[in-house]
């Protein structure tokens, strides 16, 4: 077996504007194509259908702004991370911009397994008159259990997924929600649980929080 020395890189990027409407699978392909434009040799998996080795921190729902998303990717030709920042930004489409590139220990756990929580800023944009956000926040936090139905029709408790929730004077909600594989909180659910329906919230995922505080971004 050939002993390839692969370089694992963590890319921090923003996803805004028209790029908000690019789904997660399409986003992977976007990175693959950007790498090809930049002449970067991504490492590929073995097998009949070789796929580039890439991992997103956590899928970002369609329409959300990502202020500081995370992606791990593996290069077959090790490259100076600092040089990559500029390289990436010349080959990315409108709405995707790289903020930082760091080298990661190859053997570290999968990026998605390191994510524990996500931080959001949410502007509710409710149709009804401006609600009393601080009061709604308090009411939600006082509840012991908030039963909701997820997309697959299963009942779950939203309350433990809400790790922090505050209202800002400017009318935004700041929230930190659990983001583990089987326990992911969605800001829309929180808004609904606060009784703010119906609204068309503007949602920013500000950053992801990783297990090891030292390597958390943002």
């Amino acid at each position: 077996m050939k002993a390839l020395i692969l370089q694992r890189l963590r890319v921090q990027f923003s996803k805004t504007g028209p790029a908000r409407f690019i789904g997660n699978l399409d986003l992977m392909r976007l990175w693959e194509r950007a790498a090809r434009r930049a002449g970067l040799a991504l490492a590929y998996s073995e097998g009949f259908h070789p796929q580039p080795r890439m991992q997103l921190g956590a899928p970002l729902p369609l329409g959300y702004v990502g202020d500081a998303e995370l992606l791990d990717l593996w290069l077959a030709n090790p490259t100076e991370p600092a040089a990559l920042l500029q390289t990436w930004n010349t080959v990315l489409p409108l709405g995707i911009a790289v903020q930082a590139v760091t080298e990661i220990v190859e053997r570290e756990a999968a990026l998605s397994a390191q994510v524990t929580s996500a931080r959001f800023s949410v502007l509710p944009n409710c149709e009804s008159a401006a609600p009393d956000l601080p009061k709604c926040v308090l009411a939600l936090l006082e509840q012991k259990q908030i039963l909701r139905i997820n997309k697959r029709g299963k009942e779950y408790d939203l309350r433990p997924l809400v790790e922090e929730l505050t209202a800002t004077p400017a009318g935004w909600l700041e929230m930190q929600l659990a983001a583990r594989p089987a326990a992911t909180g969605r800001p829309e659910e929180v808004i609904t649980a606060m009784g703010l329906d119906p609204c068309r919230p503007a949602i920013h995922r500000r950053y992801l929080i990783l297990i090891d505080k030292a390597s958390a971004s943002g």
């Binding site: 028209p18 790029a19 690019i22 489409p93």
Partner: peptide
């Protein structure tokens, strides 16, 4: 598939 309607492609 809202990306059909927004432009901004590379």
């Amino acid at each position: 598939r809202p990306a059909r309607y927004i432009g901004g492609e590379y």
